[in-house]
Design a protein around this nucleic acid. Structure first.
Length: 413
RNA sequence: GGAGAGUUGGCAGAGCGGUCGAAUGCGACAGUCUUGAAAACUGUUAUCCCUGCAAGGGGAUCGGGGGUUCGAAUCCCUCACUCUCCGCCA
């Protein structure tokens, strides 16, 4: 959420910002509602003052009569105020975050900027297979059974691929502990409030599973970011050191807008395991924290010796929450493409304002900045390993960094 | 799933329709005393919003929301959470 006061003082900036993100929100209407809200508020407070003054002791019958009328007026005014506030909040919730200074301006993912490339695209002197074929031949993935059980975009992972997932988790876990992040195990079902607070609602409401509508009204998390960021909701933090957490959870996603995309294999599913990290910090530190997250992600994929590049995501592709976002995309020979494997976001104070997460400095309380990043998307990392580490005989080598977590060095028939 | 009891300031805990943003105790902070400290004494001690250069003024907040009333921490409804008992359960 953006501070309405900021919008009032920087209307042109906000307008340009919205345009860069392909969002059109009626700012004049928003500001009109904001002024109207403040006027209505002032009128109500004035009338309440009168009432409070007359209610200190038992009033005379005449005053009671006058106060009764005043009370009715107040009721009407309060109702009007509520309507104004609802309309105002509706618009405020839709407003995306302000761009960071070096966020590339652009309309779609075509305009994302590749800022770094590490490693060489794997080349094979044989016909390289994709993870689906490899998974089938080595009995590692069963999509058909998953589909039969739960519908499309569900699958079973089997055998050494599951061992590999565990190894990846152990490997990443150790990295995160060494980097000073605190491990958390978190709820996977959350209230609507948590989804709004982290900015997933209203923008991505169609992407989220709702559980027992009308009864429990809980939502399945699409990322551990939601419970991790909400952990400090309504708190005043001591941020002399940034607070850093990570958690392993499944990510549940409806993939409502992606019919027909990536329908084969395990590239895009309704459920995948992911390790996620978040940082709470002072505003002055969020840029360096963002770099820290990015270099952690890079160090992980460098240790796995997977070729990747780093992308600075452009305004049109950012989503509502991010001021700036980097993606890591790994080279996937089977797809003949670089595909997203991690993503890290500087949300500045956008989530902190919605969730009222503050820190105190020199006796003053200010909104903090929040950041989040993928430590490891397990499914896609496994695809990258399968496709990059395949051999001519159809087996898959295990990256050196993972070998100490496994009792095999290759997956073969 | 069934029955009951709660939720008040940093903490403990009064208040049960008007002068209550809230007694009292503890804690914290400042001062007096002391070579220093402790003790004792004195004073200060919630948050948010609006307005103002400031001093100040106004409003809201006693778990959240709604209602009754001229007036709500206090009465009613509702939601959330906590606790006790019974049942079920990895």
């Amino acid at each position: 959420m953006i501070d309405p006061k900021f919008i009032k003082e920087n209307k042109a900036k906000v307008l340009a910002n919205n345009k860069s993100r392909g969002v059109s929100i009626d700012l004049d209407k928003l500001l009109r509602l904001y002024d109207q809200r403040n006027e209505q508020q002032a009128e109500i407070e004035q009338k309440r003052n009168t009432r409070n003054k007359n209610s200190k002791t038992k009033p005379t019958p005449e005053i009671i009569k006058a106060m009764k009328t005043l009370g009715e007026e107040l009721n009407t005014l309060e109702m009007n105020l509520r309507v104004t506030e609802d309309e105002l909040n509706d618009l405020l919730y839709q407003l995306p975050n302000m761009n960071w200074v070096d966020t590339p301006i652009g309309a779609s993912d075509q305009d994302n900027k590749i800022i770094k490339t590490v490693g060489e695209m794997s080349e094979f002197d044989f016909m390289a297979l994709d993870h689906i074929e490899l998974g089938l031949r080595l009995d590692l993935i069963d999509v058909e059974k998953g589909t039969a059980l739960s519908g499309n975009r569900f699958w079973y992972l089997k055998n050494q691929l599951v061992d590999l997932e565990m190894a990846l988790i152990n490997f990443a876990w150790k990295k995160m502990r060494q980097a000073g992040f605190l491990p958390m195990a978190v709820p996977h079902l959350v209230r609507e409030k948590a989804m709004f607070g982290t900015g997933f609602f209203p923008a991505e409401i169609n992407e989220i599973y709702k559980v027992n509508p009308g009864e429990d009204d809980l939502f399945l998390i699409g990322t551990a970011e939601v419970p991790l960021i909400n952990y400090h909701a309504d708190e005043v933090l001591d941020l002399s050191q940034p607070k850093k957490y990570f958690a392993l959870t499944p990510a549940y996603r409806r993939e409502a807008g992606s019919y027909g995309q990536d329908t084969k294999g395990i590239l895009r599913g309704h459920q995948f395991d992911k390790i996620e990290m978040v940082i709470f910090c002072e505003p002055a530190q969020s840029e360096s924290c963002h770099q820290e997250i990015l270099s952690l992600e890079e160090s992980i994929y460098q240790a796995l010796e997977l070729p990747y590049h780093v992308v600075n995501i452009c305004t049109g592709d950012l989503g509502a929450v991010a001021a700036k976002k980097y993606d890591l995309e790994a080279w996937m020979p089977g797809q003949n493409k670089y595909r997203e494997i991690t993503s890290c976001t500087n949300a500045t104070d956008y989530q902190a304002r919605r969730l009222n997460i503050r820190y105190s400095k020199d006796g003053k309380k200010e909104l903090c900045h929040t950041l989040n990043g993928t430590v490891m998307a397990l499914g896609r990392t496994m695809i990258a390993i399968m496709e990059n580490y395949q051999s001519k005989d159809g087996s898959i080598m295990i990256p050196k960094a993972l070998q100490k977590y496994l009792d095999f060095k290759e997956i073969k028939k």
